[in-house]
Amino acid sequence: MNMIVCIKQVIDPEAPPASFKIDSASNKVVPPQGVSPVIDPYAEYGVEAALKIKDALGGKITAISLGSNQLRDIVKKPLAMGADELVLLEDEAFDGGDSWSTAYALAMAIKKLGEYDIVFCGREASDWNAGQVGSGIAELLGLPSITLVKKIDVSDGKARVERVTDEGYEVIEVPLPVLITVSNEIGEPRYPTIKGIMAAKKKEPTIWKPADIGVEASQIGAAGSHTKLLKLFQPVREGKCEVIEGESPEEAAANLAQKLREAKIL
């Protein structure tokens, strides 16, 4: 089994909300002070999904990450978790892209890698929550795509997957190769082992520039985007909470009940 997982370095989504700041002049998020970036948590579910298959059937996992200023200690995490190779699409020309230009660059890199049975992506990334790159890669490579997947079984050149739906889930069978976007229901990603961390330290990532994957600067990053970000802002909270008083929590709660009744909310 040859598997490819698309990952991404992001601002830690678990950082305290108070540390979240926007520079409205540039429409960009200001990286919070003293909080290290992380691998996008959704992409980690993708790594976990690939590792589960590798545990069962063996195989090779290649992680791909796109961007500039990718911190080696961060983007090497999939290797520490058990992936075999890491490819970095690293160039400033890749920056500022939308789903279109990002999927295009990743698709070209995957094409260059050549052999694959399953390509994994997170169901969306925790920064822009776009949720499109996976389906986009599949469309560009002419692969079937199954999104929001929570379970995968592979046998006889086919995958049998469970896809989360609004009502529950559905079971879908698909021949390989296929692109799968993974949802958090797949299960918590494993922690890197000490052995994994040591191995990852020694492993050098493969770096590809736009020319290495045969793309022009005009097709990638901000230049290759179809969408334009007009404005990025933090929604204003109203903050008009009436705190219900009482001698004890019990009394306050009883007063709250009274209040809800008086205000005809219940």
């Binding site: 601002i11 989504p13 909300p17 979240f20 926007i22 998020v29 925790s126 920064d127 822009w128 929550n129 179809h226 969408t227 334009k228 970000l229 007009l230 404005k231 990025l232 802002f233 933090q234 929604p235």
Partner: peptide
């Protein structure tokens, strides 16, 4: 976007 920390306005041409 950003897990609800922010909102973005996009256009597409």
């Amino acid at each position: 976007v950003y897990g609800g920390n922010a909102q973005a306005v996009f256009t597409c041409e």
